[in-house]
Simulated assay, not measured.
Amino acid sequence: MSLTNFAIIESTLREGEQFANAFFTTAQKVEIAKALDAFGVEFLELTSPLASPQSLEDCRTIAALPRRTRILTHTRCHMDDARVAVDTGVDGIDVVIGTSSYLRQFSHGKDIPYIIEQAINVVEFIKSQGVQVRFSTEDSFRSDLVDLLTIYRAVDQIGVNRVGIADTVGVANPRQVYDLVSTLRKLVSCDIEFHGHNDSGCAIANAYCALEAGVTHVDTTVLGIGERNGITPLGGLIARLYATDRSLVRKYNLPLLREVENLVAGIVGIDVPFNNYITGFTAFTHKAGIHAKAILNNPSTYEILDPADFGLTRYVHIAHRLTGWNAVKSRADQLGLELTDDDLKEATAHIKALADEKPMALEDVDAVLRAWHHRIPVPHAQTALAEITHRNGVAA
């Protein structure tokens, strides 16, 4: 098994535009495209040019940008759509059609023989125009396996560049994903793409298992935005791959991840979640005393990701009742305060007692440490510490 041969299809400008708060202007799309190009994703997927007049112009505009990233657009498996998409100048076209009984009955109303015939016609036309083409089933995991494999084999035989598996409603689990990809990998010679929604919380795990099973391309969006709960988040996939082997993601400009996420979050009017993979404000924050001591000795004890690789720093939080004297000692060292271990342990006990009364700030801890540094006798230290309790509204 090898995870080294994979590419990210970044779909913030297609799937992400289906997010409830996304109303991208052309200028915003260009800004996002440039940021993702700088980050180093291999592909950008854009909304179908048939969606609206602006969508058509956006495809043309972004396809014309100077870039390393290849530009894709996403269309129905329909010849009229394919003709318009080819004329936009994109590098590739991702065609899709629903194959589950739900979508065949309640969406397009076509049977499997029709889908195969249509897929062959559209794929052959796009290839004749010198444009790469992916064919994907929609709602793959609620489709009949025999139907899926019959369709995939038909398009593989005519030279499609990729076939796609889509967990459109987020129903699949990692084992199901691994099994389907493994089966398909034995059947087709072309590349395989995975698109996984996060309705049941498995998008990252499913994407990772798809890679383990032989997928070559994974769809992501920044912060996982998209239809309903969205799809595999770019940062989450990066975190999972980095935790496996950091060499897998060296091809990406990792310190730009926070900038990309802040850009998209600002445009769609949301906050980056506090517990977001890598960039959430608590991602590298350590609080419990036993954790802080170990982190100060060796960060690998409680960090599987190195914040420095992402242009970030860790934070040892000490202004609370769970703090430990080793963490307090580290802060005293930062402040240049020479204190004995006994002094530090006494100061730590006092910090804990204050924190039991009211939430504290780092400046409060610093005031305690300075009081002990000046050798104020403990019984009289209340005078020096009164400002803390008064500021926090606690009786001294």
Score class of each variant (00 low, 15 high):
residue 110 K to N: 01
residue 388 I to F: 08
residue 255 P to Y: 11
residue 229 N to F: 08
residue 7 A to N: 11
residue 121 N to C: 07
residue 36 L to E: 02
residue 15 E to M: 03
residue 17 E to V: 10
residue 366 D to I: 10
residue 333 D to P: 00
residue 388 I to G: 09
residue 63 A to Y: 10
residue 374 H to G: 15
residue 33 A to Y: 09
residue 111 D to N: 14
residue 236 G to E: 09
residue 189 S to I: 01
residue 249 V to S: 07
residue 229 N to L: 14
residue 148 L to W: 12
residue 157 Q to L: 07
residue 247 S to R: 13
residue 61 T to R: 13
residue 200 S to N: 12
residue 308 A to I: 09
residue 288 A to E: 04
residue 210 A to T: 12
residue 338 E to W: 01
residue 181 V to G: 04
residue 148 L to F: 10
residue 313 T to P: 02
residue 48 S to K: 08
residue 26 T to Y: 09
residue 117 E to N: 12
residue 360 M to G: 03
residue 59 C to P: 05
residue 69 T to M: 02
residue 256 L to Q: 07
residue 331 R to E: 05
residue 115 I to P: 00
residue 301 T to H: 15
residue 172 A to K: 04
residue 155 V to T: 06
residue 13 L to R: 02
residue 300 S to A: 15
residue 212 E to L: 14
residue 273 P to S: 12
residue 188 V to H: 08
residue 381 A to L: 08
residue 376 I to C: 14
residue 144 D to N: 15
residue 194 F to A: 15
residue 59 C to T: 08
residue 54 Q to E: 15
residue 19 F to A: 13
residue 293 K to D: 12
residue 284 F to W: 12
residue 110 K to D: 01
residue 233 P to T: 14
residue 291 H to F: 09
residue 34 K to N: 10
residue 42 E to V: 00
residue 287 K to S: 03
residue 65 L to G: 06
residue 203 A to K: 12
residue 297 N to A: 15
residue 359 P to N: 06
residue 176 Q to K: 05
residue 368 V to T: 10
residue 295 I to H: 06
residue 14 R to E: 00
residue 295 I to R: 05
residue 396 A to T: 10
residue 280 G to A: 04
residue 74 H to Y: 14
residue 95 V to Y: 01
residue 308 A to R: 14
residue 123 V to K: 04
residue 308 A to C: 10
residue 13 L to G: 09
residue 41 V to S: 01
residue 275 N to I: 03
residue 306 D to L: 03
residue 268 V to A: 00
residue 133 V to Q: 00
residue 312 L to D: 04
residue 361 A to Q: 11
residue 168 T to P: 00
residue 23 F to W: 11
residue 43 F to Y: 13
